[in-house]
Amino acid sequence: MAIPRIAFIFAITAFLAGLGVATFSELRIFLPALLRGAVVTVQVSVLSIALFLLTAFVAGIARAFGTAPVRWSAAIFVEVFRGTSLLVILFWFFFVLPEFGVVMPPMVAAVLGIGLNFGAYGAEVVRGAVQSVPRGQTEASIALNMTQFKRMTRIIIPQAVVITIPGLSNLTIELIKATALVSAVTLTDITFASVQQNQLHYRTLEIFAITVLLYYCLAQFIRFGGGWLEDHFSRHLKPRSA
């Protein structure tokens, strides 16, 4: 299922690229700038996806199983970062924190802002998944005299991970789209590069078509990756073939 679709997307991409080069020979003027922007987008995406997953699991598990003070601080973190707009968070990290003596390069501000913002959304997904593991599993592992650490790492989390995959891969696609905002902290990503190139060359339709196509391809990686992970982790649920 996945492989024909990937081939299909590659075929379309190659076809459009060829068509573009053939039809609009100006493409070679602005394509390099757009691809440089794409590199920045990919860098920001990969780093913030790592931070997003880490934050989601730490905050989600803290909210579900922590002691009261841990639970409360996780809840406050989630509400603050979910309740404010991502753009405001990015601005705050980049322009306000220096006033308090914390100066960070734009890349760090972007990754922190996006990672923490989406981590707060992801924490709720993880919390829901962890809490939906049947209670009998916890009780059984207590009856088997497992330590709490072992109970979490061997019993609860492996079962919760499967449940989180669709939700988290949706959020990851949203995250990639949200990286379009990083021009607010002076990074030149695809979106900003396309606005710049548009002001230089006025080929709006072509430039934005390429931009949308690049985002679409990035999202496909996550969609297929998520599908593959889901298959991989839920193999034990499928009926065995003889």
């Binding site: 789209k177 379009a180 396309s194 548009n198 934005f208 931009t211 949308v212 985002y215 999202a219």
Partner: peptide
Amino acid sequence: RATPLLVLIFFLFFV
């Protein structure tokens, strides 16, 4: 759904 909102805003704004 695959397009970032910001790109859509710029697109409409320029197109």
